[in-house]
Write a protein that binds this DNA or RNA. Structure first.
Lengths: 349, 349
DNA sequence: TAATTTCATGCGAACGTTCGCATGAAATAG
DNA sequence: CTATTTCATGCGAACGTTCGCATGAAATTA
């Protein structure tokens, strides 16, 4: 339990301890002979530099702070595990670790934790997710000039480093795929209009509808909490519409709503992917097993976790903003059975 | 960005900085008047003690290390988010944060990371999960006398602090419930015999079968990787058995296998919960939405995360093992449609 | 009134590094 | 052969705390 210090290494290598420090940190060239002696001593004694002392002197904690909004009850976060693991791995390679702390819904309390971590010197930077419009954390960190990188965007006029999935493109691809399958009356299951992520994804819906010359019918767009129940209920209501209005496809902004929609369709004795196509978003592993399996949009989570950390570490090392300061990652449409093309007969009618 | 130090506080309060330290840490009694002056200065300057300096001197990092085995591809970990959040909250209340680091499958590399964190003084203790038989981390940490608490057990003869879900009780309850519903030929979908968690849960199966006087038929017990595909395939094979042998209920050791089993049953034109009952384990939020909804065993994850942290902090503060050194938490059987009682006619036959 | 105890606060040192400059020997130049 | 440069290493200080003991004044006791 008694730790080896740099002085013991120095004594064994017959140099001053400061020289050991410099050699270890590659701050100076010494005689090959000396260097060898030092490394030998390090190895023989099993010396590992004390993190705290190093951190105190160099004013770097080699620690990255992260918190995220907990999954609402009744859902699981399909990307959390992979996102965290990819960040841990990328950070470790650069000699960093992640400090995870609780998420507080209340803005003031939330900021308190961030400022605590900054003022006590526990972290060198933050990764932000669960970002919304007017996110107070972004204003605060920009004001403090404290390094951070977001997974996701905030308001368009706020400039900060982030990586985001191109949700617009993802939904655009979904709609395009549906149209190519002969679908014409396309509905959507979305979040409320104050959802940053939701609006981004819906932009792809509107763009595609416009591009393919399809009318957007406001009655076919339902907004609510993005869970299974809402998807079920909203889709059930769509199915009550007179057959002239009833959608032949439903784009859901996440997989849970899509699963709810599929259940509602099946309850009516219809088959998702036949009478009514359904698409989701996220590619929750479970959806490949549904009957029919769900067409959805997959986000390259591992890449995102990696990039987000790399961007932050760039900021820490170079002390300037990354260039480009932000980037969008294209997601991938995974086509399955829930969006089979409309039979030719129907498509030509 | 210039941080306030304890000396500035001292200057403003007209005392020595050491006195400020003592007052802040409640190490000494001073005149109420002086104390007031100090706290006022702290507040006015917004002083937050530098974590690194404090940590260097007091040899405590106020940090807890944690890593976990990443979810295999095609699955999501239904309890990860809640487990982490509950630990973060509990730790925060005691002034601790969690340091999360990557999981390495290879034993030696894995231990390297643990020893690195210990030797550099980055953490005061660990929480362990994904524990298996002969877990090298446990041997190592016990040998180093480094504080840790496990979520889960290892070999029976290894004594260390842990909290575990009573998987045996959970499966026992499942079987009991099935028997009470008139089921007699009960099969199981399990992990391989080298799975610590699996064997614990299966113990409940055997206990219940024995207690209710039902024969255990080895042909009705399938073992494999606990995913959807295995559940599907194994159950499909059970359904091929001649009707005299075919099970009227299947106990799966997790929800994914249960979902696979339900799909296999449905493929045969049968209804889970009618001809063949199915139960799972974990209460993945999704299973309440399946048709039929899945009977399963729910683990009180929030409580476990809390307890595990409390046990560790007890060790850190008291410098002795918690008493009792380990405890089992009873899980809760959630009864849904996949395990409806056999119709009386069938039950009496 | 002198000796002792109590109380409130101060002081020096230490935790284990990194940083910037100093130093002395060897090598090169004039 | 002296003056200068280069090279390898050493040295003192600092980072911002906490810790243990010292100190001096006030309060108590004899």
């Amino acid at each position: 339990m008694n730790r080896v210090t740099i002085k013991e290494v120095a004594a064994r290598a017959n140099v001053s301890y400061q020289t050991v420090s410099k050699v270890i940190n590659h701050k100076v060239e010494v005689l090959p002979e000396t260097e060898e002696r030092i490394w030998a001593a390090v190895k023989e004694l099993g010396y590992k530099p004390n993190y705290t002392a190093r951190s105190l002197r160099s004013k770097r904690s080699y620690t990255i702070g992260y918190t995220w909004s907990p999954t609402p009850h009744g859902l699981t976060n399909p990307i959390l595990d992979q996102f965290l693991q990819s960040m841990f791995h990328t950070a470790e390679q650069a000699g960093y670790y992640l400090l995870c702390f609780p998420f507080h819904e209340e803005n003031e309390r939330q900021l308190q934790v961030y400022s605590e971590l900054i003022d006590t010197g526990r972290v060198d930077g933050f990764i932000l997710s669960s970002i919304e419009y007017k996110d107070p954390r972004i204003a605060y960190l920009l004001d403090q000039k404290f390094p951070f990188v977001g997974f996701g965007r905030s308001d368009d006029d706020v400039v900060f480093p982030y990586i985001d999935v191109d949700g617009e493109l993802g939904v655009y691809q979904s709609v395009k795929h549906l149209v190519e399958g002969g679908r014409k009356k396309i509905g959507a299951l979305a979040w409320p209009e104050d959802s940053r992520v939701g609006n981004n994804r819906m932009a792809g819906f509107f763009l595609a509808m416009d591009e393919f010359g399809l009318p957007v019918n406001a009655d076919l767009i339902a907004r609510g909490s993005g869970n299974y129940e809402f998807g079920y209920q909203a889709c059930d209501e769509l199915l009550q519409l007179p057959s002239s209005l009833r959608p032949d496809a439903v784009v859901a902004l996440n997989d849970y709503m899509a699963m709810g929609a599929m259940a509602a369709i099946q309850k009516q004795g219809l088959i998702p992917g036949k009478e009514i196509a359904v698409t989701g978003f996220d590619d929750n592993p479970i959806v490949q097993y549904l009957r029919p399996s769900l067409t959805t949009v997959q986000q390259p989570i591992w890449d995102i976790g990696q990039k987000v950390i790399e961007m932050l570490i760039y900021q820490l090392n170079e002390e300037k903003m990354p260039d480009p300061i932000c980037s969008l990652i294209p997601p991938k449409l995974i086509i399955r059975q829930s969006s089979l093309p409309r039979s030719m007969k129907g498509g030509m009618a």
